[in-house]
Amino acid sequence: MKLNLKIWRQNGPQDKGEMKTYPIDGVDGDMSFLEMMDMLNNQLVESGESPVAFDHDCREGICGMCSLYINGEAHGPDRGVTTCQLHMRKFNDGDTIYIEPWRAKAFPVIKDLVVDRSSFDRIMNSGGFVSVNTSGNTVDANSIPIPKDDADKAFEAATCIGCGACVASCKNASAMLFVSAKVSQLSLLPQGKVEAKERVLNMVQTMDDEGFGNCTNTGACEVECPKGISLENIARMNREYLKGALTK
């Protein structure tokens, strides 16, 4: 395949940035999107140009590091996958592909397609945990049975990879889906219930402080989330928040 790539280039946080065009040839359908980017970069390096910076690591959809906005969609046109799992067979010979970084106030661009998502970590630091020491001197793991349904739901919520596609797809750049996934996971489990109220209040506070927008229920996040994190989590978090706020 021959493709025409339009890629966002931005030298640093202060740089204005612009879209640049890169034609590329010899792409085959079995290549992943990032392997196509590797090919481009190796060509750029060997011809003395500067390669395109982008984030990635595991390349199997689990670390949450890759983050491209492709043809106007977070993680590209395929559903239920991250950018690193997207394969070139989803594109056609001659296509023009637009590649941009996540765009959100709380995710400033560092360079080209690389953004700073440390705001997510700061939300977690404010409450995304159970306050238990790691001494191992806890109760036996089977001493509190957990209904399978709750365990399964908690697991579903816990599969969030923290990629930020939900924020990037949301016109308000809201982080509700991400935050609600963690709040839900822990509020569904007996171990997390103890501090459920403080958790949700603290995490929502940090989310607001970090400059994420409000949720207006457009649902774009759920559509683009590569892990299928459901809007139900947002509803659950809203209930938890109300409970927390009322008893505070």
């Binding site: 945990f129 159970v130 191992g136 001197n137 806890t138 209904p147 399978k148 365990a151 171990q191």
Partner: peptide, 25 residues
């Protein structure tokens, strides 16, 4: 020797291991 404590520890942290219908691991 310490392997069993790992599981206790992780469950206490809210790690959602697979469970059977009786609610046990």
């Amino acid at each position: 020797e310490v392997s069993a404590s790992i599981i206790d520890q992780c469950v206490a942290q809210g790690v959602p291991f697979a469970r059977d219908y009786g609610g046990l691991l």
